[in-house]
Measured scan of single mutants.
Amino acid sequence: MQGVVKVNSALNMRSGPGSNYGVIGTLRNNDKVEIIKEVDGAYEIRFNGKVGYASKSYITIVN
């Protein structure tokens, strides 16, 4: 499943599905991501070869 990031500035990509996990990357508006699955209000995603988590509130599914 594919998604597009929709933010005003940037969205943190984290090592786990919550803000208490470390930041492993930054997503920008209109970045395209692969959605692997939904976990606790976040999506597990793949972006630029990395797998991490981002809030589903800022990712629009575009299948």
Rank of each mutant, 00 (worst) to 15 (best):
R28V: 11
R46K: 11
E38V: 09
R14M: 11
E44C: 11
G25A: 15
V39N: 04
G52E: 02
V39F: 09
G49R: 03
G3C: 08
G3A: 06
K32D: 04
V23P: 05
R28S: 10
G18P: 03
V23D: 04
G3E: 01
Y58I: 06
D31N: 04
E34H: 10
V4R: 09
S19R: 12
V7M: 04
V7R: 06
Q2F: 15
G3Y: 02
A54D: 01
A54Q: 01
Q2H: 13
V4F: 07
G16D: 04
Y21I: 04
I45M: 03
G25D: 13
Y53Q: 02
A10K: 14
E38C: 10
I35M: 01
V51Y: 08
K37M: 09
K32V: 15
K37L: 08
Y21R: 05
N29W: 07
S57W: 12
E38G: 04
R46G: 04
D31C: 05
S9C: 15
Y43S: 00
R46P: 01
V33I: 06
M1C: 14
V62N: 07
S9W: 10
G41A: 06
E38L: 07
G22D: 15
Y58Q: 08
V33F: 03
L11F: 05
K50P: 00
A10P: 13
N12F: 11
Y58M: 09
N8H: 13
N8M: 10
I61H: 04
V51D: 05
I35V: 11
R14A: 05
N8Y: 08
T60L: 12
S57G: 11
A10C: 15
S55F: 06
V4C: 10
R28Y: 13
D40N: 13
G52N: 01
N63A: 13
S55D: 15
K37S: 14
F47I: 08
N29G: 08
I35L: 03
G16F: 04
K6G: 05
I24V: 12
R46E: 08
V62C: 12
I45P: 00
G25Y: 06
F47T: 03
Y21T: 14
V5S: 01
N20I: 09
G16V: 04
V5F: 00
R14Y: 15
V5I: 08
E38S: 08
N29R: 07
G22F: 11
S9G: 15
I59D: 01
D40P: 07
Y21H: 12
I61V: 12
G41W: 12
N8P: 10
S19N: 14
E44M: 15
G22S: 14
V39A: 06
A42N: 14
V51Q: 09
I36N: 03
I35F: 02
D40Y: 10
Y58K: 08
Y21M: 08
N48Q: 12
V62F: 08
K32T: 12
G41E: 10
L11W: 00
N30S: 06
I61Q: 05
L11N: 03
D31W: 04
T26Y: 09
I35P: 00
N30V: 02
D31V: 05
G16Q: 06
K37T: 10
S19Q: 13
V39R: 05
K32G: 04
V7N: 07
D40L: 11
N8T: 13
I24E: 03
A10W: 14
S9R: 14
V33P: 01
D40S: 09
